[in-house]
């Protein structure tokens, strides 16, 4: 008891602004193996949804796992999920803990 169980949270970000506005660090083959949110830009869709937080680690985007994806690939997947016209939102599976679930 008392040990915090690493939990994953599904966060829906509505595309309420022309930009997503997050900065991420890390990716496969770095000491931060899954991309972590390091900055959220004021006025972007991520900021507007007010559920994404700096420090959260992104496990999946729209069901696509970022496990094993290098930094540029992970950033590209996130950017394309925001740009696609098919959906008016994006789903992030995030965790507060620096573990891969």
């Amino acid at each position: 008891p008392g040990l915090l169980e690493p939990t994953a949270t599904l966060i829906r970000v509505m595309k309420t602004a022309p930009t997503l506005g997050i900065a991420i660090e890390g990716g496969a083959k770095t000491r931060q193996p899954l991309p972590r949110i390091v900055t959220i830009q004021r006025g972007g869709s991520a900021h507007n949804c007010s559920k994404l937080k700096v420090g959260q680690v992104i496990l999946e985007v729209n069901g696509i796992s970022l496990q094993g994806k290098e930094h540029r690939e992970a950033a590209r997947i996130i950017a394309e999920a925001f740009k696609t016209k098919e959906k008016d939102h994006m789903d992030f599976l995030v965790t507060e803990f620096n573990v891969s679930l």
Binding site: I24, E25, G26, H71, R72, I78
Partner: peptide, 14 residues
């Protein structure tokens, strides 16, 4: 000790 690059890449996603 696995040599992981200390420098971690950062990118903006707009």
């Amino acid at each position: 000790l696995r040599l992981e690059p200390q420098w971690v890449p950062i990118s903006w996603v707009y």
